[in-house]
Design a binder for these strands. Structure first.
Lengths: 209, 209
DNA sequence: GACAAACTAAACCGCCTGGTTTAGATCGTC
DNA sequence: GACGATCTAAACCAGGCGGTTTAGTTTGTC
């Protein structure tokens, strides 16, 4: 509708307020957790009055769940390499492995994981959003890719889905654990590459032909 | 009999107070998290007055950290099977795999993991206690075991430590992830066994001889 | 220049928090 | 049977919480 369009444009500058709030809240919530962040702190961080926040979001819980779900959907990396026909297997496994393994230890990745795991008892929707939009997605894509590779005689798998799970699980390695527990917030990229190469080697030794 | 019973209960009641508090607090904290549990709730759950809690523990943070660290140290399962000389490799891997994988999806294991991951930014000591007393311990034991097996010509590993990490990582599988995110609080034991068998098969296919 | 919508800062509400203090009850010990 | 330690319930504190309200200001449109 024309009136609505004009109105939207007119309020354009205003309408950025919700986005400001989302970004500020995401920063605080992801860094400090649901309980440790007050709405006053969000207002301060966003440079916005508390009343404005409550004009756009029903309550603290909705704002939090909204943001974490958004983060779950947004951060998931490109896995287009798994859509094409299988070429060089080692190359493909290394590529997808590096992308996934680096996400797992990235600050955003760690923070998101922390929030989902910590709050999923009170926000069950977060668990679903995270798992379906992340681990499950990449597992299904990889399993399909591996099945195609097997059909081409490049692999000898028992169960493609189990094989995909195993490969991905090897990427959720001790560096991931150490990042989650705060012991090693930023593992060296070379270390990550070593783990990915190790996983690829082992995978191909077990299933390659 | 009656007198002795009364006496026992009286004596026990006094000495047991700190333990009552610990147990009640552990129950609540592990189930609901640091922020969501009030000291009044702990007092109620323990059947004790708040003043008594503060007579035994400096403050909420100390009580919490104390308990989680205790849980980290306590729950770690028996891995004596890795101390002996390597016998049947498949059998040993299956055994240690089942113990570890079942811990990972057990309610206590999941709750502890959740607490450590959620609160380690504010309680860095928890990360250390968990990692050193858990994943690192079992990884070192398994690596040493694998190295001995290799010396006996039963395996052809590149790096025993990496191999141990890979095997254990495969046990931290999607069931673990689904338990952490609340999607599947209690995976069927048969499912766990399948994952452990899969990890063992793959490990031996890659490294066995 | 009038007008409605979106915004602002700040006061305000009731409630709950972690933590302390009171005054008194119970207990084992000497 | 009295003492010191340990416990109790309950009142109390200052402060922060989520959330609302108020009263007034900016903004773009007609």
């Amino acid at each position: 509708m024309e009136t609505a369009g004009k109105l939207d444009r007119a309020v354009g500058a205003r309408a950025m307020k919700p986005q400001q709030i989302r970004e500020a809240a995401a920063r605080l919530f992801l860094a400090q957790g649901y309980g440790a962040v007050s709405m006053d702190a969000v207002a301060r961080e966003a440079g916005v009055s508390k009343a404005t926040i409550y004009a756009h979001f029903a309550d603290k819980a909705e704002l939090f769940a909204d943001l974490v779900k958004e983060e779950c959907a947004r951060q998931w990396p490109d896995t287009a390499m798994l859509e094409s026909e299988p070429g060089d297997l080692r190359e493909a496994l290394m590529a997808v492995g590096m992308v996934y393994a680096e996400l797992l230890v990235s600050p955003k990745g760690v923070q998101t994981f922390r929030m989902v795991v910590a709050e999923s008892p009170r926000f069950p929707e977060l668990g679903r959003a995270f798992y379906d939009g992340g681990p499950r997605l990449i597992r299904d894509k990889l399993a399909a890719y591996l099945a195609r590779a097997e059909a081409q005689g490049k692999l000898a798998l028992g169960d493609p889905r189990l094989a995909a799970q195993q490969f991905l699980a090897m990427l959720r390695c001790e560096h991931h654990l150490r990042a989650l527990t705060g012991l090693d917030p930023a593992p060296a990229p070379a270390e990550i590459a070593r783990v990915v190469a190790g996983a690829t080697d082992m995978f191909l030794r077990a299933y390659g032909r």
